[in-house]
């Protein structure tokens, strides 16, 4: 179901799809720092903040999902740094378990983002669990 009161034009579909692709591109070029994905999506969001509702909506959803992933990845990143610098307890079972969870979530996010990019490009409105309703509140027509 498309909740928008208009049919998005071709260029809007492309921009909305690109908002998801931005975060994927950064992963693909091999930047491991968790902040980079968020920054890439944030820059794209800022660049399109005055764009049409459809574009803004998808930029916001992409940004929100990247933000929560950023929080998860940051914990994993700094936890790893403390281990490398020998400041913490070392490699513990809970650390490995958390790392596995983070990898699984990143993988899930990666698949969902690819799917969203493709579907949005085709003009299908994709609203994710939790992020969709949250975007509805933040992003107004």
């Amino acid at each position: 179901m498309n909740p928008f009161f208009y049919t998005p034009a071709e260029y809007e579909l492309e921009k909305a799809s690109n908002s998801y692709i931005m975060s994927l591109l950064v992963v693909m070029v091999g930047l491991p720092l968790p902040i980079i994905n968020l920054l890439a999506t944030l820059f794209f969001f800022i660049a399109n903040r005055k764009s049409t509702y459809f574009v803004r909506w998808h930029c916001t959803q992409a940004l929100l999902s990247q933000f929560s992933l950023f929080c998860l990845n940051s914990v994993a990143f700094w936890w790893t740094v403390t281990i490398i610098l020998n400041k913490g307890e070392g490699i513990t079972n809970i650390y490995v378990a958390y790392l596995v969870l983070v990898v699984l979530f990143n993988l899930l996010e990666f698949i969902m983002t690819i799917r969203a990019a493709i579907r949005t490009r085709k003009g299908v409105h994709i609203s994710w669990w939790f992020y969709g309703p949250l975007t509805d509140i933040i992003c107004k027509p």
Partner: peptide, 12 residues
């Protein structure tokens, strides 16, 4: 829940 379940495994 995910973290809890994953910690049940002896990863070390």
């Amino acid at each position: 829940g995910g973290v809890y379940l994953l910690t049940r495994m002896d990863w070390i």
